[in-house]
Write a protein that binds this DNA or RNA. Structure first.
Lengths: 170, 170
DNA sequence: CACAATGGTTCGGTGAACGAACCAAGGTGT
DNA sequence: ACACCTTGGTTCGTTCACCGAACCATTGTG
């Protein structure tokens, strides 16, 4: 009963959510999916995560309806509508991390693709006041961003330039 | 180097944040701190967490400046300003959990202590439009709330009625 | 056709989480 | 003042999650 992902005694939505995304690596996989990572090998290369763990996590997230897997032997993984709902979680975590562990300011900036205004964690544009869908959000390197070094993987390199969220990397 | 809480290869604020709060039980401890839980035994009773794990987590969160510990052999634990910054994370997680794993609607409602308006995950009051500090937020049972059963611990019982966030339970 | 890329799966080792037991100090009641 | 209870831990042996290395089958490319 006391399975490592579960919080069986908790009658609480935070616990229910953590049962899905609270395991080690899960939220980083979800984050990468928002950034447009789609392929097993790209998740693996970017996250430097053991392949067995990645496979298990992807399976589980697909099973919970957070991600969906394309067909074939070379499937792509994409966030479902349910998975898209995790953006405020990812974003608020990033903001907190930036504030307290980002000495040079935010690593990523998020702007509205249409008007260029800053998009807040729950998706409002500071310039035009509209709710901005995740897919209309452009992510750019911020002042705290560390450029990929020599020999960095292709995903890190691709994510080092402005890029729409959810846009597949390839 | 590949310590279980760390994500050493990640140049990312989400990863930095998860290094602090991403371990099993940490975010639930933080959640409970928002609810006003202050004592070791109360965290232990409410979370049903192994005591060694709780002690280690509290130590770590204190070390990271998320919580502070009072003096004496019976210390109270309270969120620091840094810890308070995690409220949007906790709240957005709860919202996502409510949406997808709460068949009867939200388990908790959050209202502005002054005017009674609904408070959104980043702290805006829907009635008066003001930013609402966490401590001015009243948490009440919502439609999806499950009342504590027979023999439930005192913390669950205390949290079953409307209560200001951060207000110590005792 | 040969080789590389891809998406896994298996395996043994290490460490985290677990429940049970123990312990020292402080608090409370008689 | 003393005995007992409560509190906040700490220790310990067991189980399992995560890890890195190795292996493998299928597909894609030159």
């Amino acid at each position: 009963m006391a399975l490592p992902r579960e919080y069986t005694q908790q009658s609480c939505s935070v616990a229910r959510a953590l049962e899905v995304v609270g395991e080690r690596w899960s939220l980083l996989i979800v984050r990468d999916a928002f950034f447009g990572v789609r392929r097993f090998s790209d998740f693996s290369a970017h996250l430097r995560i053991p392949r067995a763990v990645l496979a298990e996590r992807l399976d589980f997230l697909v099973g919970e309806g957070v991600l969906e897997r394309g067909t074939g032997t070379r499937p792509v993984y994409a966030l479902t509508a349910k998975g898209l709902g995790l953006w405020p979680v990812v974003r608020t975590l990033a903001e907190w991390g930036d504030t307290h562990y980002g000495p040079r300011g935010p690593r990523r900036l998020f702007t509205h693709a249409g008007c260029g205004g800053a998009v807040d964690p729950v998706g409002s544009c500071s310039a035009c006041g509209q709710g901005v869908p995740v897919g209309d959000t452009v992510m750019s390197p911020g002042p705290g961003f560390e450029a990929p070094g020599e020999g960095a993987n292709a995903v890190s390199v691709a994510l080092a330039s402005p890029h729409r969220l959810l846009q597949p990397l390839r």
